[in-house]
Design a protein around this nucleic acid. Structure first.
Lengths: 245, 245
DNA sequence: CGCTAACTTGAACGCCATCAATGCTTGTGG
DNA sequence: CCACAAGCATTGATGGCGTTCAAGTTAGCG
């Protein structure tokens, strides 16, 4: 059901770190040239995963990197009380590359997923012989770094609602950075996945949603589509965060 | 009290990401060649900061990068309920580089600090004209990324003691990666800084310490030096985390 | 030696985890 | 297309833990 794509092959999107300072109006750009995509597609194969299926496991030998075509992947890490979600990955994202030797976290399909699978060895050979890709890797790493730091700041919040607002805010930025302008926010992943990302139990997440619904700040059309009704109240919560009133 | 250094100039240390997979026995290596250090030292000046002093502030125009000679720097970010510590930076660390345009967090001396200050423009010129430094930047970014992800996983823990154990574990790895083998752990920063890093209040941190002391797991010589007495109990807590026993 | 800031400790409250039961969706097979 | 089953989400009740506010103590520094 994708819009027809003339050009096949991996697509890696990222915001250019030195185009904008903050996560303001950052749009994501295609990092790969047509030539690079063509060469990558020669060594890539298309793989499919059912929702909930494991793509790779913590400790497995890292032999391939993945580039998402459609769907959402969640990377997990088992810690103390169950496993937490370290990141959500969307179409255009690349994962499985940062590791050498063994994967350091577990990747699982949060929705049905279609992806390019590329043998790590071949990718690394390309990187070695192509200085241009170095810059791309740096850009991608910067993006992942910023996201990890945002995630940490989110998790440092003490109240469930605060974390949820930061999460929704982040999702909105992702949406606009993809160029979508729908008034609704789409949350493709399960509640339990969101809860794990927020460091909460599903029950606590549900209550936080309920509170915001009762206060008339947000409304759900169905379990995955929500709309922000009271933008002022929402921003008041969000501003709390980035500017500490 | 540093060992005499024949060679002056910036030093940037990092673990090589593809020497070891995990944070196992990873030792940090000097990334810069003597030549690079010599050239960097030409554009660097030495600056000093008193404990608590602000090095740069969120939103300031980013005009310089810093390389720590001695002391500890904490990067802060103001969020919802006060400001949290995003990272601690030690001698050999480089900071203020990831940004272009404006600093995205506030850096503050957690102890008295001596550092090299390098104009960003000059550093960037060097990077552009020197492909070797690209790899160094990638290595450094990988390291920061891993650390940010560990921080997030730490913050996803629900109990104060769990977070504290993960933090102490991390400090131990840092110590061994610096090649130190003292039986004591040295915590140069204030309690309030540690609490902010752990996403806790100083009160909660104090209670977590007290519990571990009462249980005979750790003991303090003074406020900054502690020793792990019951390694088994400590590891049991730590293993809890990475293996979900 | 006294001051100040940081740390610790105490008591009460509030929020989230936990456990358990109900209700809703989704996917499967008849 | 419908019925059923299994998983997921919500809701309720309770208890533990961390926050909060405040007082007392210690450490660090002039």
């Amino acid at each position: 059901m994708l819009a027809a794509k003339r050009m096949a092959g991996p697509e890696i999107y990222a915001v250019h770190p030195w185009v904008l300072g903050n996560l303001g109006k950052g749009a994501r750009h295609q990092l790969l040239s047509d030539d690079e995509r063509a060469r990558l597609s020669k060594i890539a194969s298309i793989v499919r995963f059912k929702k909930g299926e494991e793509i790779y496991r913590d400790g497995d030998e890292a032999d391939a990197a993945f580039n998402i075509i459609s769907g959402v992947v969640a990377t997990h890490r088992k810690e103390g009380d169950g496993d937490n979600v370290a990141s959500f990955l969307y179409p255009g994202d690349l994962f499985g590359l940062s590791e050498e030797g063994c994967y350091v976290n577990t990747a699982r399909a949060a929705t049905p997923v279609v992806a390019y699978k590329m043998p790590l060895l071949a990718v690394r050979r390309m990187l070695d012989s192509n200085a241009d890709l170095d810059v791309d890797v740096i850009i991608k790493l910067c993006e992942e770094l910023r996201e990890a730091q945002r995630h940490a700041m989110l998790l440092a919040q003490k109240k469930a609602i605060t974390r949820l607002v930061m999460f929704l805010d982040l999702q909105e930025h992702l949406k606009t950075s993809r160029g979508e302008s729908a008034p609704e926010l789409y949350l493709p992943m399960d509640r339990s996945n969101i809860a794990a990302y927020l460091g909460l139990t599903p029950a606590a997440l549900s209550r936080a949603f309920r509170t915001m619904i009762t206060d008339g700040i947000i409304a759900f059309r169905d379990r995955r589509h929500l709309r922000i009704l009271d933008r002022d109240a929402f921003n008041r919560l969000a501003d709390n965060l980035s500017e500490n009133g």
